[in-house]
């Protein structure tokens, strides 16, 4: 099966936006990273990272600054080629059972299925409608009459439709920080991704907006899988099903422990994880 057909495999239909507890089914992972190593200027930023993500699961990546969490996440949809163009990436990344790295398949197709939301909201300085239409066009959607419905559906998913339906021609950068971030999530949802990567999505937001984003991430679990990088342990505890603890060893980031969030937060196996959770490095 080629990459394009794998990327376009049917997915469960999206449900409404009310949060429900969806158990994480055991089975083949939706995304799997095997022996990932990222080298830059003769130094390994991360090495030997093995992680998998189950369907409809929220995986939180925790750990101190500079241990390669964001670098790892940006390798998953090959955004690293834009953020660190000279970085050398080794290892394998599998999506829905298909090898997507190394692969000659288009990175753009991969990014439609493994979407990403960044630390700072990054809407373009155009109207809200144009921001959404850009995402549809970037996904290769050429059926313009269907745009309005898709945009409405995506904005409803992030609870923005009622607030923005009469302001679709307003400049997106004039929205509040929280609204901008939700708009960016709505934009990412337009490609109907299998996985959404959140790289510290709340670090530039106020607590109210942060709560709205967290609720939204839990809602998203019903339609796709989520990886969230966070420094906020309380946030990881609130939103995630599973945690992966990154740590810097000999100058390179490694995963030192993974497990269900409840266990990692209450009874971690690794001494460093326990100390980090208990704030003993402060």
């Amino acid at each position: 099966m080629n990459i394009i057909s794998r990327l376009s495999e049917p997915k469960p239909a999206a449900a409404g936006h009310t949060a429900q507890v969806v158990p994480c089914p055991a089975g083949p992972p939706v995304l799997e990273a095997r022996a990932i190593r990222v080298g830059l200027a003769g130094r390994d930023i991360i090495r030997d990272v093995n992680l998998s993500l189950q369907p409809n699961e929220i995986l939180a990546i925790i750990g101190p600054s500079g241990c390669g969490k964001s670098t790892f996440v940006s390798t998953l949809n090959r955004m690293i080629h834009h953020t660190l163009p000279t970085a050398k990436v080794e290892g394998e990344i599998w999506l829905n059972g298909g090898l997507v790295f190394p692969s000659s398949a288009s990175a753009a197709d991969l990014r439609c299925k493994v979407a990403m939301v960044f630390q700072r909201p990054n809407p373009f300085p155009f109207s809200i409608r144009m921001n959404m239409e850009f995402a549809l066009k970037a996904n290769g959607d050429r059926y313009r009459p269907g745009y309005a419905d898709k945009i409405e559906q995506a904005l409803r998913s992030v609870n923005l439709w009622d607030r923005l339906k009469d302001r679709m021609n307003d400049v997106a950068t004039r929205l509040s920080g929280g609204e901008q971030q939700r708009l960016c999530i709505a934009r990412a949802l337009l490609s109907d991704p299998d996985v959404i990567l959140f790289d510290e999505p709340c670090s530039a937001l106020d607590p109210v907006s942060c709560t709205a984003i967290e609720t939204l991430i839990q809602d998203l679990k019903q339609r796709c899988s989520v990886i969230i990088v966070t420094h906020n342990l309380a946030q990881a505890r609130r939103v995630s099903d599973r945690c992966a603890m990154f740590w810097l060893r000999d100058g390179s980031g490694e995963v030192i422990e993974t497990g269900p969030t409840d266990r990692i937060m209450t009874a971690p196996n690794h001494e460093i994880t326990r100390a980090y959770i208990n704030g003993e490095f402060c």
Binding site: H82, C112, N122, N139
Partner: peptide, 18 residues
């Protein structure tokens, strides 16, 4: 040009030309 526009566009699956 703010880096966010570049990363935002590429993360949405846009190519360089777009």
């Amino acid at each position: 040009l703010p880096t966010g526009y570049r990363t935002g566009a590429y993360a949405l699956g846009a190519g360089k030309a777009r």
